[in-house]
């Protein structure tokens, strides 16, 4: 493999720097192993997490506009393709929809540029890590890089909401019957469990007002995945991960919800790191409420005797 790693600007977002550090680290490690390098843009602020659904709320676009602007400067200074890679579903949704809004209505961009006293030219294309793997690297190429046998894992992809919706603006995959995570998991050699709850909502920010509701919704998802025979869930969103994981952890003591026992929730990059034969030490499995290492042990031990594909 050549040492020249493709330089891709990267926007982490607040959660990835704190509660979901394992997600970021595993993604960065995997990127290096695959052949590109994610460079964090120099200064960035929180994107606002939720895109303002009311059309006249321009203030909600100010933060993402600032980020896109920083990314644009980053790319122009280095004369590279104007891409911006993201990991968190919320950031991806907000940034991509902001970009879409600017393309749809250039007036909005004009107003914001005047307000921010800066000039964003609208060149940045927002890309999700998964999208980059699918469109630039290619899942078939990814499959060739796999070093560990993952076939003992029965995992259910869980998409959540904001990665896919609204389809018109996100244009990543079908919002009702998505396949991108399925294809990804197949490529790295897992057994994929297709279950109907894959696009249901985990409760999202309702955790602030109504944790009971989140508990109920998360439970339904876990229960469904369990009924379809999954050992673990795989997600791309730090909030989905924490809602599912924490509610499962919280629930263990109560009799109110029964049925699911210790189903771990992975970030897709954590599994990718395992499959690529990387050291998973820094990927913070210990921060999960439900310990994921036990179901990984088969794959990790097999890591000592990796698949003999390349010989």
């Amino acid at each position: 493999m050549s040492k020249n790693l493709t330089h891709v600007p990267y926007y982490p977002g607040c959660s990835l720097k704190t509660k979901a550090l394992g997600y970021e680290r595993s993604a960065m490690d995997c990127a290096k192993a695959i052949g590109f390098e994610m460079h964090e843009i120099a200064t960035w602020n929180c994107c606002g997490a939720s895109f303002p659904l009311t059309k006249d709320n321009l203030m909600g676009l100010a933060a993402p506009a600032n980020i896109l602007l920083e990314a644009e400067q980053h790319c122009q200074e280095r004369e590279i393709d104007a891409n911006l890679i993201t990991l968190c579903s919320f950031c991806y949704n907000t940034l991509k929809r902001t970009d879409f809004a600017f393309r749809e209505e250039p007036k909005k961009l004009e107003t914001l540029n005047a307000f921010l006293k800066r000039q964003y030219q609208g060149s940045i294309k927002v890309v999700h890590y998964l999208e980059y793997l699918r469109d630039v690297i290619g899942f078939d190429n990814l499959a060739k890089m796999v070093k560990r046998d993952m076939s003992s894992l029965r995992v259910a992809p869980y998409y959540g909401c904001l990665l896919l919706k609204p389809q018109k603006e996100m244009a990543l995959d079908d919002p009702e019957e998505p396949v991108i995570l399925h294809d990804f998991l197949e490529a790295i050699g897992c057994q994929v469990v297709d279950f109907p709850g894959q696009v249901d909502c985990c409760g999202s920010y309702l955790i602030m007002r109504d944790p009971e509701k989140v508990l109920e919704l998360s439970h339904n998802i876990l229960q469904e995945a369990n009924d379809y025979g999954a050992d673990a869930l795989v997600t791309a969103c730090p909030l989905c991960q924490s809602n599912l994981d924490q509610s499962e952890g919280e629930r263990r003591g109560s009799d109110h919800y029964i049925g699911v026992q210790g189903m771990p929730i992975f970030y897709f990059t954590q599994l990718l790191a395992v499959a690529l034969g990387l050291d998973t030490e820094p990927h913070q499995f210990e921060r999960h409420c439900i310990d994921p290492t036990s179901i990984l042990s088969a794959c990790l031990e097999d890591g000592a005797k990796p698949i003999e594909a390349k010989k």
């Binding site: 959660s15 979901a20 939720s50 999202s204």
Partner: peptide
């Protein structure tokens, strides 16, 4: 709590 939950919650509530 995860940062994004707090931020979104503050935006909506």
């Amino acid at each position: 709590s995860t940062q994004q939950a707090v931020v979104s919650g503050f935006r909506k509530f």
